[in-house]
Design a protein around this nucleic acid. Structure first.
Lengths: 116, 116
DNA sequence: CAAAATATATTGACAGGCGATGTACTTTGT
DNA sequence: ACAAAGTACATCGCCTGTCAATATATTTTG
């Protein structure tokens, strides 16, 4: 099942930070990578992706450089900054808490549901 | 920690459906109930709540009636419809899948993280 | 040689959350 | 007695993030 845009909202940035924490990458590749990792549940749309990149750059969480492709289309690579890594870690912690809270608010038997 | 509005988006409706699945209730009470249940992590704002009620009513997932208060301010009670219950169940299922997907996308060791 | 894939980027529309604000009644503290 | 806080409902308008549509350019595939 696909993630709706309402669900996506709030996680896009962290998903991208996590993706970059595994190594520098570029937009097109990240879309594919994220689709693969999520078993097709999430195919980031271009406008969503590039707006997120701009946001993250402005906040100093990532930076970017042009790759030196011999052939093929040019690629802009993105890199996680130190600040970006710190943010990632705190957002991962936040996800664990959000998960717990939503279990409490959405499920009938949260205590049981957590060990699925 | 409080749920950000970006996170909330996409869950408000289901949270309200779940709340009503435990019995008819009214706006003010539901805000308090949800705050208690989430250990203060979520205090729904009035505009958010009432727009959600309108949305859910239009979709036939809830209906409402005025309570007959002897004293105090009038209360509009909300009730989960049959259709609303079905929706709740499918949204609960969706949450379990979303949880799994976000574990994959956000955490370093998803397999381990799931049994927290 | 056309279509699909690779790759980046912007514009404008849409939807949901929420600060600010308004109404009205009741309870509490002094 | 009276102000402040609590209970209870409701709306307007702003802000932000996602995305359909669109544009550009190169390379690979059928």
């Amino acid at each position: 099942m696909a993630l709706s845009s309402d669900i996506l909202r709030g996680y896009t940035d962290t998903i991208l930070l996590k993706c970059l924490s595994e190594g520098d990458s570029y937009g097109y590749q990240m879309i594919k990578q994220i689709a693969r990792l999520s078993n097709g549940a999430l195919e980031l749309k271009e406008p969503t992706l590039y707006t997120a990149f701009r946001r993250l750059s402005q906040d100093g969480l990532i930076d970017s450089y042009w790759g030196d492709e011999q052939s093929g289309a040019r690629r802009r690579y993105y890199r996680l900054t130190e600040k970006g890594l710190e943010r990632l870690i705190s957002e991962q912690q936040a996800w664990l808490e959000t998960r717990r809270t939503l279990d409490l608010l959405l499920l009938n038997n949260p205590a049981e549901a957590q060990s699925i």
